[in-house]
Design a protein around this nucleic acid. Sequence first.
DNA 1: AATAGCAGAGTAACCGTTTACATTCAAGTA
DNA 2: TACTTGAATGTAAACGGTTACTCTGCTATT
Lengths: 335, 335
Amino acid sequence: MKKKETVTIYDVAREASVSMATVSRAINHNHNVKPETEKKVLDVVKRLNYRPNDVARGLASKKTTTVGVIIPNVTNSYFAALARGIDDIAEMYQYNIILTNSDGDEKKELKALNTLYSKQVDGLIFMGNEISEAVRSDMSNERIPVVLAGSVDSQNQFNSVNIDYRKAVYAQTNELLKNGNDRVAFVASHLNRSINKDYRIEGYKDALRDAGIPFRKTLLFEANEATYDSGYKLRNKLVQEEVTAAIVSNDDVAAGVMNSMSDSGINVPEQFEVATSDNTKLTEMTRPMLSTITQPLYDIGAVSMRLLTKLMKNEEVSERNILLPFGLKDRNSTK
Amino acid sequence: MKKKETVTIYDVAREASVSMATVSRAINHNHNVKPETEKKVLDVVKRLNYRPNDVARGLASKKTTTVGVIIPNVTNSYFAALARGIDDIAEMYQYNIILTNSDGDEKKELKALNTLYSKQVDGLIFMGNEISEAVRSDMSNERIPVVLAGSVDSQNQFNSVNIDYRKAVYAQTNELLKNGNDRVAFVASHLNRSINKDYRIEGYKDALRDAGIPFRKTLLFEANEATYDSGYKLRNKLVQEEVTAAIVSNDDVAAGVMNSMSDSGINVPEQFEVATSDNTKLTEMTRPMLSTITQPLYDIGAVSMRLLTKLMKNEEVSERNILLPFGLKDRNSTK
DNA sequence: AATAGCAGAGTAACCGTTTACATTCAAGTA
DNA sequence: TACTTGAATGTAAACGGTTACTCTGCTATT
């Protein structure tokens, strides 16, 4: 078994006959090093196969080049898409991400925040459908920057990247209304979460109002979870309310709702229309394919991370709350 | 702006009138501390809101309680499911994961390994369909343990957690053969990758041999990417070879193949049968639903992480290469 | 020629812990 | 009584870097 002594900056300094300070400067491409000295040092670095210890660096510089990412569930394709965007940009800017699944559960979120702070992450990207008071206070008490990705904050206290959910749902509801539906359902995993309560449902109401159709509380449905199965289980309730169309705030849930209808012999879209929200790949995989709001999922993640890098470097940012463009994609689950 | 001085172990020591060593012992629940002293210290910890700096800890103890996870793509539901299992168990054992997407690309894998090593991760979980020589040598030269999750190594050099792909595909091919298909295709994203070349295709051949059906190279298809679209594009080639059934090694690709067939008027499963490999949720969302090998996806991740914790603690492990049980789920894409 | 200015390099403090080793003190032992 | 022992705690040296400050020796300026 080879001894594999770890080679440190001292070893490099000795071999290159310079001080460790010079080695440090050389590997960090500090300009105060004569080019030939830098070359000499870098040659030794290569020869000894020296690799700086980021932990030591972190302690000395108080920067870890690591950001914490809190995600409800990697398994959810919406958030997974954002995560991918986040990671790509992180890599581009030489950061790594510590990924933590929270299930949108406050306890887990708080625990994650705690260990992330212990690990001295330079910044935080938070995804989740709601920001509880405890989480809010935790995040605002630390001095590291945070940005919400695809997540809203009712108090509008943090930086964020989203689309205009209200307008998007407004436009989408309009379509369904135009198709002649007067009992269109709104379904979300949790109705009382800010993203639904303050944005999507408002958009939905706006559209109803503009169309002169009364808003009915009974047409608001809750799936409890953002999963296919929980959507699938909604059928009876939907049928009972004689709903002929539904706006769904999550693709998995929407697929569940739609398949459930189809499976029971209700024809989509002829007898029942479904429109969903995220345009994940899933919307193309179902039959019929799902009409949806189109969101730049990857970009929401990417832009969030980009924004975070600016905040971590104390650069000026023009917008605290970025809204990316959305669209409407008409596929086969609507007329 | 509140000054928010970071409180260190010194502050706690002073306030508790003990030495920092005692504080360190107390917070680490070292037994060499008188219970009342421990309580005194812990009270101060709480009062000052002291939170140990893991970076400093890491430097001093040479343990970061962080593991690196290399994943082809979080967006791929197979790997995402594993990742979730990994993270849950990691959390259970007080580790965090640094997640890095590699796209299965050697360059990116090497780069990721490098930064992960710099960050002094205590262990590594590698997911990817192939282990290149460079990656292999990199991973074996470092002294930190690695386990392959849902990934095989042709040299069988690393710890791993998988199912028996050969047997699984064997059983699955048998089913298709039993249904009367004599031209059953095998499709994978990359045919020459060990997991396919050495396992799945061997299982496929075993079944053909046992059924007395000649193996035809022309019935091996490559999708190039593990994506829905790349599967979708395969239709013409499949039709051209007059294939009546296909074994597909990835759910997304399988969904693409199936939808592509259906969309062009070929009836599944009457005229064309498809069987897939991962039993991700997607297999239930398509219509018809996909028959599949069932794998304990979450568990593969979870067991991998559990195994890694043992290795990191230098505990004895009985099996280096764990095979988890698989099954066959007959749904509607096969007769 | 004298002096200021600056590039390039070195010295050493510091980052916040862990931990080997030393010390203290009280109880047990012969 | 004198000594051993061990539990509880303290002291200080790592851990492997970054960086403020200092120093040296040229070049440019007047």
